[in-house]
Write a protein that binds this DNA or RNA. Structure first.
Lengths: 240, 240
DNA sequence: CGCTGGATTGACTCGGATCAAGTCGAGTGG
DNA sequence: CCACTCGACTTGATCCGAGTCAATCCAGCG
């Protein structure tokens, strides 16, 4: 299985053996969680940094009127904000979507690791920049894309992220998100999302079934989404 | 006038005299820019960190179809991402809104300052967390708030941020944003934004005029917005 | 003093929400 | 093995918020 967190960071920097063993030590005692368990709740005083080793989670906010907005998805290897410990209070919650394996790294441990392993710090900063760029892409989607474009764009994002960590099986990939969750991610109603999915199915672009997505026509999906993968910042800065 | 950048960071940490003079040195040679000048353009290879000392700017993206989405506003004291230099390519642009005074800090200078002044680093991380929380609030607005709520929410955010840096003159504050820009921030058309502003004026909640906003009924504005200022993270973590 | 870009208003259209029934499918217990 | 149940998915009918298109209006300014 390996350690997804290490795998991810290796994509963002040249980690030494020492770096990797420090990361392995820091994530050595993970806990299991069932699906739909809050890992962090809005209003909480933040604790340790959490790292998803297996399974999916989402960040979300509940509004006064009871509606929910999903803000981001965490896939294996992803973590919450590095400096979360500096906050007095969480402004959003994080909940598992599937059964998960989650490691926690205390603030002290984190600081020590970042001080002692500059390349780890560097890789984590890149990961954080990608997360921020993804949030900007979401804002752009919500503000300026139609519902079908928005759906296509999110599927492109999730597909590429899954592929980067080896979670795809070519035209298909495991996508454990209910239509309700997706609707709450995209700022639309479940009913309307369902119609959009139907349209994408009829156009033979993609088929979403319980737990998995089949991308029938990747080129058309990218074209509908107006997808530009630059924001995922896979290309590393070459020279120092 | 003072240095807005230092003032802002002092709100996020206990800076020593040495910290402050390091910041003063780093921002000692600012440049002036006219309104509507790109400071950083999407696709550029990132250069130094930029810091707004005077004036407003915005982050934005242009979509393939030519529409624009504003992603955030930078007010005096705000800066772009600390680790911007780690990226191969910008995923969005930053443009001045008003005539501005902007300092730049090279990557080397920045690294040295963060290493030598831990409290500066700490304050900057908090500032970054606030920026991220603000992005999450924008996603939430776009996804789950009606247009009038969205407008009210943005006005609350901008008002509070302006007040934090002493830029308000009680019920009024200088808001140099055209309706077109606001519409591109809120994911709506200028025509519809104009109607929403009219509604807020008729309800005697607020009046937006060229260059300034008068908040007639703050309580009602907050209530319409469903505004919870927690995400601006003004309350610092008390104990260490 | 007319030009120009933002602001404003009206008439019409349409995407997506809402309301209201179903249907399907996986797990549960008899 | 089958009936039951509960949650998730589908579909149809209708409504309304917001977009579109098209005129003005207005203030600042060369």
């Amino acid at each position: 299985m390996g350690n997804r967190f290490i795998d991810k960071l290796r994509g963002f920097g040249e980690l030494s053996e020492a770096d990797m063993s420090a990361l392995a030590t820091a994530t050595a005692r993970p806990r299991k969680f069932a699906a739909r368990q809050d890992l962090i709740r809005e209003g909480d005083r933040p604790g340790p940094v959490i790292v998803m080793l297996e399974g999916w989670a989402c960040r979300y906010k509940i509004l006064p009127n009871g509606t929910r907005q999903v803000l981001a998805y965490l896939m294996p290897g992803d973590s919450c904000d590095l400096h979360i410990g500096l906050l007095a209070e969480m402004d959003h919650s994080i909940q598992t979507v599937t059964p998960s394996v989650v490691a926690t790294i205390s603030r002290g441990e984190m600081d020590a690791m970042m001080d002692g392993h500059r390349e780890i710090a560097r890789a984590m900063y890149v990961a954080q920049l990608v997360d921020q760029a993804t949030m900007r892409a979401w804002i752009t989607s919500m503000g300026r894309r139609t519902s079908i474009e928005r759906v296509a764009h999110l599927m492109c994002e999730l597909y590429l992220r899954a592929r980067n960590i080896g979670l795809t099986d070519e035209p298909t990939f495991g996508l454990p998100l209910s239509q309700l969750l997706l609707a709450d991610s995209l700022g639309m109603t479940p009913v309307h999302l369902n119609r959009v999915l139907k349209e994408l199915r009829q156009k033979e672009v993609m088929v979403l079934r319980r737990g998995s997505l089949i991308i029938t026509d990747p080129a058309k999906l990218v074209q509908i989404a107006g997808f530009d993968e630059n924001y995922l910042h896979r290309r590393l800065r070459s020279a120092a």
